[in-house]
Nucleic acid binder design. Structure first.
Length: 557
DNA sequence: ATAGGGTTAG
């Protein structure tokens, strides 16, 4: 094992601060105390003590001098060695890891010291891999673990969900049950969280059922996770039921419920919760105010939002940060009060981020303020030159203003910088199965029927007054082709499939990974009217409830 | 003997 630690040219990094008596070994990510050694002195380290010694071992040699360390010639260390090395050294090394390379180093030490049978240590290795988003390494390690307990499973399930792999995370949960591991409450919190991320209602109901069968009570954390799950699966009412049944609620539970009403467009209900929260003795925090302001902006509650923004610091000691300002810019922008929005931005003392300029830009697009949009877009492109979405927005603004030359410039810029456009996908649950569609997808078994259905549906819609909005197509092709491309958007494919595969009157729930496209939004409004279906769409930002030709977002999202 | 994995926004 030592060659590993000291293989880095056999040297130790120079002391970080001479006076501090601490230095950091280049490969061992923990700080060890320094001790004076003579120049070129060799330290003999006994095997069974080596880690402990390492932490007191040290050098005070000049920076050019190598530190030589040798292990005593002893019997090789076996994995079931009775020689005891305190696991806490490994734990602290793991916690200090700054990158994957360092984790692998410590991981190797864990193996070399026969600690693979110590779940406390192995779970920590797993946890650190996951925290560094190294799912490949984490999985490989997990797969090779001799023994796993509920903590190992929590780490994996939580890690996969956190990294955006909620579907895989739920598969892991299946495996856990197949292995006969009985989930504890914390396991269920991670599973509930994965369901929330996935937004799959049938999974949510199953998990809820499962929790009831295990007789787990809804404590603050589990209950809050369930609120979030139901809300993000499209049912704010189920979320509220859980909320009302919870005996103990903290600021997180209240904020989760307020946020839920917010992204479902029910701003008034979100606001109504606030005084209830105060009177039950809960102090609002930053996130509570983000949720409240967000709810106001998405429901057009302008005066209420401004009022909250004005008193949050004086009355509740929550200092407005850039996120709060963004909500207010959004709020003012929606109302067309762009001068006030700009004024707020210019007088802000906190650092401006891309979300803030993005909110202003979106408002400029709606109210066709080309000059201000240019200014916002410029700031945005300075902050995030690699985000294709910003170019798309600015390009659309020029298109709407008929400034074709400027639009061409932006598109040229996009081509030159050769962006990877994030591919859009949409999925829908039918018969407890998730069907996913990409743009122009033809892989579904019912693909032929779907496209046929879309064609006849579009004729009906156009008779009803629907006009494809080709501003949302960026390819340089003629209008008719553009309209064709629009019809292959993943949202439309998923909805067409849902309409074919479910009985009349069944509500459709679909989830899209990006913000729903403007043309699709109009399209779905018409579909909801003509087919008399409730269509609930979760996009990257919020929920849209389409019913009888209108959307709960009020066309602002 | 004991340790550890869990909730809101972005």
């Amino acid at each position: 094992m030592f060659p590993r630690i000291f293989s880095n040219k056999g040297t130790v990094q120079k002391p970080l601060a001479l006076g501090s008596l601490f230095l950091q070994y280049s490969c061992l990510p923990c700080t060890v105390p320094m001790l004076k050694l003579k120049k070129d002195q060799t330290l003999l380290i006994a095997n069974h003590e080596r880690l402990r010694l390492l932490s007191i071992a040290a050098i005070a040699n000049t920076q050019e001098t190598s530190l030589k360390l040798e292990t005593q010639k002893q019997k090789p260390l076996e994995s079931h060695s009775s020689l005891h090395v305190d696991p806490k050294y490994f734990i602290s090394a793991l916690l200090n890891c700054k990158n994957i390379f360092q984790i692998k180093q410590v991981h190797a030490q864990v193996v070399a010291n026969g600690l693979l049978n110590n779940l406390f240590v192995t779970n920590k290795v797993l946890y650190i891999y996951v925290q560094h988003k190294a799912l490949g390494e984490a999985y490989a390690f997990f797969d090779g673990m001799r023994e796993r307990d509920s903590v190992s499973w929590s780490v994996m399930i939580g890690g996969y969900a956190e990294c955006g792999n909620a579907k895989e995370s739920l598969v892991l949960f299946e495996w856990m049950r197949e292995e006969g591991v009985v989930p504890d409450k914390i396991n269920m919190v991670t599973v509930v969280n994965a369901c929330a991320k996935l937004g799959a209602m049938h999974k949510a109901r199953f998990v809820h059922d499962y929790i009831c069968r295990l007789n787990f009570s809804f404590d603050v954390i589990l209950g809050t996770a369930m609120i979030d799950m139901y809300a993000k699966c499209g049912s704010v009412d189920c979320a509220r039921e859980i909320f009302d049944r919870m005996l103990e609620k903290n600021v997180i539970s209240w904020s989760a419920m307020i946020a839920a009403y917010g992204y479902h467009g029910q701003g008034r209900k979100a606001l109504d919760l606030f005084p209830m929260m105060l009177s039950s003795g809960i102090t609002p925090n930053r996130i509570t105010f983000v949720s409240l302001l967000y709810a106001c902006s998405h429901a057009g509650l302008i005066d209420e939002g401004l009022q909250l923004f004005n008193v949050m610091w004086d009355e509740y000691a929550v200092r407005p940060d850039v996120k709060h300002c963004t909500c207010v810019v959004d709020l003012l922008g929606r109302a067309g009060r762009l001068d006030e929005a700009l004024n707020l931005i210019e007088n802000m003392t906190v650092e401006k981020d891309e979300g803030l300029w993005g909110a202003l830009l979106a408002a400029c697009r709606i109210h066709k303020k080309v000059e201000l949009a240019e200014r916002a877009a410029k700031s945005l492109l300075e902050l995030q030159p690699q985000n294709p979405g910003h170019y798309v927005l600015l390009s659309n603004i020029y298109a709407n203003a008929g400034r074709w030359e400027d639009m061409a410039k932006i598109r040229k810029l996009m081509t030159e910088r050769s962006f990877k456009k994030i591919p859009g996908w949409t999925w829908i649950e039918v018969d407890n199965k998730i069907h996913q569609f990409n743009v122009g997808d033809k892989s579904h078994p019912l693909s032929k029927e779907i496209y046929g259905f879309l064609k006849s549906m579009s004729e009906k819609l156009e008779l009803a007054g629907y006009v494809p909005d080709t501003n949302f197509v960026l390819h340089d092709v003629d209008e008719e082709v553009k309209a064709g491309i629009l019809y292959t958007h993943s949202e439309k494919l998923a909805i067409a499939f849902g309409l074919i595969a479910t009985p009349e009157g069944t509500p459709l729930r679909i989830t899209k990974n990006l913000r729903v496209c403007g043309d699709c939004h109009t399209f779905i409004k018409f579909v909801s009217a003509i087919t008399k279906r409730l269509i609930i769409v979760r996009d990257a930002n919020r929920f849209h409830h389409f019913n009888k030709g209108t959307c709960s977002c009020g066309d602002y999202w």
